[in-house]
């Protein structure tokens, strides 16, 4: 039972990440490989604020969101000038920069969280506070699962509200024909900045959920492979609609290892096979179903 609850918590977290990535890829039409970096920024900001200042879940998560949004300007400013492969490369640079900082901001012997040893490198940060809302601590796994599921539903509804509003339609217009949107007097730069900011905020929030649930984070959870996996998740699930595509992407990501359990394979083999199935799905989707399992925008 606990294992199923654990899967549900991961599903909740990854649905929020997928929803956030869907805003950039499915609505702005930009491929990014930096999403794990924003996920990481949220996780680390939450961990540091809760460890050093003793903040509760809500204010610490807000701090994580604000930090991720502030750093989203790096990607936003690039989106003004760069498109296609140039933007992908820039996002790759952001991902590598964040990962390198997380990995290298360490000094042996110094207390983790101090200026000399802010991230503690590969050893990461541990003993991160469990979610605590209005003085109630969610320590049991079933309580955390309920909290995170409610949070995921609220985030999904809020995202849906945003993406089905005139603002969401404007994003689609920019994605489909940026020149035409500009011709209609829309401030494309500001709208892109807003969209990337919203995506970073959601990813940062998911990062704080991840850190609070795991109680430990290190850079390996947020490397380039993770960014590739996140991108794969929404491409397989589908982009361009407000919920169902990203939800299916996250669900498939969680479901594949479970399906492989029935084959009674060793754990290591199952992990590698899971990624192979994902790679295969990417090729199959691009060839025969570019809109993903449940998406509405063809990634061609």
């Amino acid at each position: 039972m606990n294992y199923l609850l654990h899967l549900l918590i991961f599903l909740d977290i990854y649905v929020i990440v997928a929803l956030s990535l869907n805003v950039i890829v499915g609505y702005v039409g930009l491929l990014t490989l930096a999403h794990a970096a924003y996920f990481a920024m949220g996780g680390y900001a939450y961990a540091l604020v809760s460890l050093l200042l003793g903040w509760e879940f809500v204010p610490a998560a807000i701090a994580a969101i604000l930090f991720a949004v502030a750093l989203s300007f790096a990607l936003s400013l690039a989106s003004w000038r760069l498109k296609g492969d140039f933007f992908v490369l820039f996002s790759l640079a952001v991902q590598v920069a964040v990962y390198t900082v997380l990995w290298n901001w360490r000094k042996s012997g110094a207390q983790p969280g101090t200026w000399e040893n802010l991230t503690n490198g590969a050893d990461g940060l541990n003993a991160i506070a469990k979610p605590e809302v209005f003085g109630y601590k969610f320590t049991a796994i079933d309580e955390t699962a309920v909290l995170f599921t409610v949070v995921m539903i609220v985030v999904a509804l809020a995202t849906r509200l945003m993406l089905t509003s005139p603002w969401g339609r404007m994003l689609k217009a920019i994605r489909d024909d940026e020149l035409a949107a500009r011709g209609l007097g829309k401030d494309v730069r500001v709208v892109k900045m807003q969209a990337i900011g919203v995506a970073a905020a959601l990813a940062g929030f998911a990062g704080s959920m991840f850190a609070s649930y795991m109680a430990f984070i290190n850079p390996m959870s947020f490397d380039l492979n993770q960014s590739i996996m996140l991108l794969s998740m929404i491409i397989v699930g589908g982009v361009g609609n407000a919920f169902i595509g990203p939800f299916f992407g996250a669900l498939i990501l969680i479901a594949i290892p479970e399906a492989l359990r029935f084959l009674d394979l060793p754990l290591v083999v199952a992990a590698e096979l899971r990624l192979m199935v994902y790679g295969l799905l990417l090729i199959v989707m691009m060839r025969w179903r570019p809109q993903g399992v449940a998406g509405s925008y063809r990634m061609e």
Binding site: L31, D85, V88, Y278, G279, L282, M286, R287
Partner: peptide, 23 residues
């Protein structure tokens, strides 16, 4: 197919080959 289709497919091939080597 667009840049995206080629890029994502190539990413898929990359993942498959690397995981096969690891396996």
């Amino acid at each position: 197919g667009s840049f995206t289709a080629h890029f994502v497919s190539s990413l898929g091939i990359y993942i498959i080959i690397v995981q096969a080597l690891t396996l």
